[in-house]
Simulated assay, not measured.
Amino acid sequence: MKKIIFLVVAMLAIRSAANAHEPSLKKIFNGKDLDGWVVPDNNRDNWTARDGVLYVKSDTSRKGSILWTKQQYRNFVISAEFLMVDGTVDSGIFLRSENDQIQIGISGSLKRDLTGSPYLPKLKYPVEADVKNILKEKEWNTMKVQVIDKTYTVWLNGKQVMTYTSESIADKGPVGLQLHPGNVMAINYRNIMLAEL
């Protein structure tokens, strides 16, 4: 009996130690307004919040914009759920600046879905994430991005799909969400959470 109790206590201790290394994610989107975010000038209802969801949609100008966090980060993990609603969805998560982005949806230049892949203006898509049979059409998906120094890793729906080291990533900066210019599109986000590392 003592051996069983010891084994149970040991297993609980191991599980507790493993969970201690998991970052504690905190909401950076409150689900009811854009408090904590820098709303683009002339928003035109491109970015609206209600009932726990961030609604992102193009307007007739198709100018596009970026919604940035007010806070800046160095090393962090961000997690968000997204639902590609309508049109040619070309969105993504910017990491510390406009230089490094994780694509969500159709690449404007390559005309195919590159969700989870890094986009850098000078290099375009230096590697491509393999999301075949992972990305869910017309359903909520969860993307998690970990950024440590110059390296970022992406998980889609719990599966690691890409790791990349960017020599040009900024040392510190905000996180941004993109509404790509030129497209007619709608995408929703919810449960946007972040932990500093």
Rank of each mutant, 00 (worst) to 15 (best):
F94L: 12
I78H: 04
G108R: 12
F94C: 06
S65I: 01
V53S: 09
S97Y: 06
M84W: 09
S79G: 11
I78K: 04
L110T: 10
V77A: 09
I93F: 03
S65R: 00
G116W: 03
V85P: 10
S61C: 08
Q103L: 08
L123S: 14
V127G: 08
S91H: 05
L83R: 09
G64C: 05
G87Y: 00
L123D: 15
K70M: 08
P126H: 08
A80D: 04
R74G: 09
G105E: 03
V77N: 07
S61I: 09
T88W: 13
T115F: 01
V53I: 15
S109P: 06
D86G: 11
K70Q: 14
L54N: 01
G92K: 00
K124G: 13
I78D: 05
T69Y: 05
P126F: 06
L95T: 03
V77Y: 12
D100K: 06
D86T: 12
S117R: 02
T60F: 13
G105A: 10
P118G: 02
F76I: 07
Y55C: 15
S79D: 07
F94M: 11
M84I: 13
S91C: 06
R96F: 01
G116I: 07
G92R: 00
I78Y: 04
R96Y: 02
R50G: 14
K111D: 02
K111M: 07
R74W: 03
R62N: 13
Y55S: 15
Q72G: 09
Y119G: 01
N99L: 12
I66H: 05
Y125K: 05
R50I: 10
W68S: 06
Y55D: 15
Q101D: 06
N75Y: 07
N99W: 08
R50D: 14
S109I: 13
Q71G: 12
V56P: 01
V89I: 09
D51E: 15
V53Y: 09
G64S: 07
D59I: 08
R62K: 15
L114P: 04
I104E: 03
T115Q: 04
L54H: 05
T60A: 15
L95F: 05
G108N: 12
R112K: 15
L67V: 05
S107D: 05
V127K: 15
Y119C: 03
P118S: 04
R96S: 00
W68G: 06
S97I: 03
S79E: 13
Y55P: 11
I102Q: 01
I93L: 05
S109N: 13
